[in-house]
Design a protein around this nucleic acid. Sequence first.
DNA 1: TCATTAAGTATGC
DNA 2: GCATACTTAATGA
Length: 229
Amino acid sequence: MAKLDESLLSGLPPFSLLGRAQIREILDQARTQRFDEGAQVFCEGMDATHFHLLLDGYLRVVRTTPGGDQIIVLHISPGQLFGIAAALHRDTYPATAVTAAESIVLTWPSHLWEGFTSKYDGFATETYKTLGRRLGQIQDTMTEIATQAVEQRVAAAILRMVNQSGRKTDAGIEVGFPVTRQNISDMTGTTLHTVSRTLSAWEKDGIVRSTRKHIVVTAPHRLVQLCGH
DNA sequence: TCATTAAGTATGC
DNA sequence: GCATACTTAATGA
């Protein structure tokens, strides 16, 4: 594989304070991997041998309940570190990471983590910020599931995806990776049938337009109204 | 209000 | 043409 350019990392928060030489150093210790849509980068319970950064694509972080159904905990966007709770404390991964779209991932052995946090300025603090944001987001979702009606939860989930990955189209703003009704039900604690009915109703109301695995939000303000924030 | 069952259509490799 | 994605109606907790 060809050498990666320093510019790939230079803009990203964990590395923003670093010079070219340091970024070169970090890149030279990384392995690059491409994953097809739907592939697992690591699996819940596996030995946490590596930590990762998503260069391109999108990931779902998934936990499987004892009952066997899966819930989508959060999504990872390009430029974000993941599989890092492992590098901090745990010896196994607490969740499974599945690619939502074809993805490029940088990977480092976990034993480098200590050195990264002590050696590279800003790396540790930015990582804590990321973890804090994710924890906050998970808590928001938990609160929604406990207190909000299904329609509001689905609205919030779609808004979250759009905020994280939205791309403009002529019709509106589109979720930047493939999503199924089933995926949305796994984020909101409902069934794919209810999600399907909800989206159909919104489509009639002109709030969204959707085709298989693609959702375009045509009236974002109305979705915001629906979830009541 | 929503899950479940069931029975269908649409879509894309 | 088959698996997967999606839709809709009916029923009942």
